[in-house]
Write a protein that binds this DNA or RNA. Structure first.
Length: 739
DNA sequence: ATTAGGCGATTTTTT
DNA sequence: ATCGCCTAAT
């Protein structure tokens, strides 16, 4: 147990206080993860069976890293610790207990998009206008209600407006629809276990006895449902350890309730509280700036973070003309620091408030051939063709899933449109059958055309065949032959366009992703694989070891650290977002979000703002963020606003000078393009596309611009591609490169 | 009755 | 880029 020597005295106390309720208030960079991992390792080393430990983390990535470290401390027995996100762990419990609450174990997990589609479906069926009641808004009300444990009846009773009454009505039918589909949304993964435990005392007790030691990371970001859930589980043995930092609570918008951590000592009057106040991550300057900022928040647990680390450099403020200038300045700072401090690209992170901000930075990095990764944003699994194949697999796993069935019933085209589907649904309703079952009885449905009938029958036959095959084939074989049988691949092939080609390749890639998943976990079931697809987050997929610059939102950056961090877009209206229309609570959350971002930095922190920025199709001229004033004292004054043109020229020179010298041995220049960056062109105006210009498109290859229209985000270009033909492209998305 | 094609919106953050 | 929604073509 000599590993306890790696800890400072407070950390060690927190690790050793294993009995009874414990709260660890862990400031940023104070070794929170360390305490958690060592605490778990300590539990195992004093003889607690690993399977009695339940550790709930915020991301799967955090869980798998912790598992790795625990294994290195106490060895293989740590394997049976239950560690993962709330959603993943309770999905696992629900898979075994589903029948007790009227579900089947093969239930499907609907992500936000699926849930939105389901809401559209039920609103349509109920004849509620989606014009008057935007499904998005309805969804967020429903989700809020669920996070706060309101049943449809309770929510309806508490409705404050006509809109909320409608939302309550939709909520009611939505829940029934989900159940009918044997599907749960993200919120249900927390709600249903509560329902289970409240309705089945024996089951609750069984899990209480099972999980005698419960640890929760990022407790400040738990919502009401999560709170109730862990308190139910911990009620018998009361060995509950929560770790968090109220200053880093940034998920109120998703129902997180900061009171959970603020009131912990009230909930457990015998709780022991430990405060980790020594920061091991950042320089004195960075910490000081973060402290200056967070002091502006009223509601807070008082604490003083301190560090033995070096003073470090002042913060640098990048005063930028617009978002392109901002991106260019960030890239040139990365270049300079990279060579000056002999850093790797993986030491840099660019953080922003909204995903849309990544584009400009991305462009600048690509132009210089600097490798980067974007965490989040639009994903592989969001592609249409991928969702189609996954929908097939989902129907196979759960034939009751009507949403997935509707998605694929006409993919590829089988001549089945809205009208036929309405007949199908009516027949299903009348006879209490699933859509898939009804498809098999298409002959009994009156008014269907020959084409429609045979189309439905072929879908039905296909699933009948594969449902039969399912028990005999591995997930890999199953999905391969299913894709074969669907026959989309030859269709894409036949289409011959570059777009179809890319869809073809994406499906191949999905199939290899499935094989890989099976290889790394031979026990995995189809349901399990689909569950992973639904519950794996963006950061989970991020590989911090790859030597690239990382771009991500401030939210995604929670829990990570980087030697050099850029926090960009510090403008009123962007950060804090909607500055003039948000209340004090939201403003404080924005401030905490910046606090999180700043405290990611170890050595050096850059903050930037642009005097002009394109947002939602309009050019805006925001004021610098009020947060800049709050940390002003820690910002170096030497980077005063300079005339943009001059500065670009200067930097151009410097970069040019360095490339020449650096190319030989510093290992840096290889990341940058050989031709010296032309800042004038990059930052002034976008390399303006002209009619007649030759361009290159990621998917379509080379082409000629025939026409241009629209402004800002809605700017479009008509391009003629020799192979693909004429295409209208939205510049915002089509990453055109002038050749 | 079905499908193709065009238009407009999407985005604040996410399990 | 993708989706829902609308209209025109088949």
């Amino acid at each position: 147990m000599n590993f306890l020597n790696d800890l400072n005295p407070v950390q060690r106390e927190a690790v050793k206080a294993v009995n009874g309720p414990v709260m660890v208030i862990a400031g940023a960079g104070s070794g929170k993860t360390r305490v958690l991992t060592y605490r778990i390792a300590y539990l195992v080393s004093i003889g607690v069976p690993a399977y009695q430990i339940l550790a709930l983390t915020f991301t799967n990535k955090a869980a798998s890293e912790m598992k790795g470290r625990i294994a290195s401390l106490v060895g293989e027995k740590s394997r049976s610790i239950w560690m993962g996100t709330f959603h993943a762990m309770f999905a696992r419990i629900l898979r075994t207990e589903a029948e007790k609450i009227g579900y089947e174990r093969s239930f499907t997990i609907y992500d936000s998009q699926d849930s939105l589609n389901a809401i559209r479906t039920v609103m349509n069926a109920a004849g509620i206008s989606s014009q008057q009641f935007p499904p998005q808004a309805i969804r967020s009300r429903i989700s809020n209600a669920k996070n706060n444990l309101f049943t449809p009846e309770q929510y309806s009773a508490s409705a404050q407006s006509f809109f909320e009454e409608k939302a309550a009505a939709v909520y009611d039918v939505y829940q029934k629809y989900l159940k009918q589909n044997n599907a749960m949304d993200f919120d249900d993964l927390l709600l249903k276990p509560i329902e289970l435990f409240r309705g089945h005392k024996k089951t609750l007790e069984q899990y209480q006895d099972r999980f005698r030691f419960i640890l929760i990371d990022e407790y400040q970001d738990t919502n009401r449902a999560q709170y109730v859930l862990v308190n139910l589980l911990a009620a018998k043995y009361r060995n509950i350890c929560v770790v968090g930092d109220d200053a880093q609570s940034i998920y109120a918008f998703r129902g997180a309730d900061i009171r959970n951590i603020l009131d912990f000592e009230k909930d457990y009057s015998d709780a022991k509280t430990f405060r980790l106040e020594q920061n091991y991550r950042s320089t004195k300057t960075i910490l000081g700036a973060a402290d200056l900022l967070i002091k502006n928040n009223v509601r807070q647990i008082p604490k003083t973070l301190w560090t033995d680390n070096q003073q470090g450099e002042q913060l640098t403020l990048l005063d930028c003309a617009d978002e392109k200038d901002e991106a260019a300045q960030i890239v040139s700072q990365i270049y300079r620091d990279c060579s000056e401090y002999k850093l790797d690209l993986k030491d840099f992170a660019v953080l922003y408030r909204t995903n849309a901000q990544s584009r400009a930075v991305e462009d600048a990095l690509r132009r210089q051939n600097v490798p980067y990764v974007i965490v989040g944003g639009t994903e592989f699994y969001d592609r249409k063709e991928i969702k189609d194949v996954l929908a097939y697999l989902r129907v196979l796993a759960n034939p009751k899933d009507a949403e997935s069935f509707l998605r694929i019933v006409n993919v590829p085209n089988r001549g089945i449109g809205d009208a036929s589907l309405e007949k199908l649904k009516a027949f299903a309703e009348q006879n209490q059958l699933t859509l898939l079952e009804v498809a098999g009885r298409a002959k009994e449905i009156t008014g269907l055309g020959e084409k429609q009938r045979s189309g439905l029958l072929s879908v039905s036959n296909l699933f009948a065949k594969f449902i039969g095959l399912k028990p005999t084939l591995s997930v890999t074989e199953l999905s391969r032959s299913l894709v074969d049988q669907i026959g989309v691949l030859p269709l894409y092939k036949a289409e011959g366009t570059a777009e179809a080609q890319s869809r073809f390749e994406n499906i191949q890639e999905l199939l290899s992703a499935i094989s890989e998943a099976v290889e790394s976990d031979p026990e995995i079931t189809l349901e399990g694989f689909l569950e992973n697809v639904a519950l794996v987050s963006d950061v989970d997929k991020w590989d911090g070891e790859r030597n690239t610059v990382t771009l991500m939102t401030l939210h995604s950056a929670k829990g990570l650290e980087f030697p050099i961090v850029f926090v960009s877009g510090l403008e009123e209206g962007l950060f804090p977002i909607y500055a003039d229309s948000i209340g004090d609570t939201e403003l404080e959350e924005e401030r905490r979000l910046l606090y999180v971002g700043m405290t990611r930095a170890m050595k050096k922190l850059y903050v930037s703002f642009a005097r002009s920025r394109f947002r939602n199709g309009d050019r805006t001229y925001p004021e610098p963020s009020r947060f800049l004033a709050e940390i002003g004292e820690k910002i170096s004054s030497k980077e005063a606003p300079v005339d943009a043109g001059l500065r670009f020229a200067d930097l151009g020179e410097q970069v040019k000078g360095r490339t020449g010298r650096a190319r030989k041995d510093d290992g840096v220049s290889k990341y940058f393009s050989d031709d010296s960056p032309d800042y004038e062109n990059q930052t002034d105006v976008a390399p303006e596309l002209a009619v007649g210009a030759k361009i290159e498109h990621e998917m379509f290859g080379e082409g000629t611009v025939l026409g241009l229209s629209g402004k800002g985000d809605s700017a479009k270009a008509v391009v003629l591609f020799p192979e693909v033909g004429r295409k209208m492209l939205l510049l915002k998305y089509a990453k055109l490169k002038v050749v």
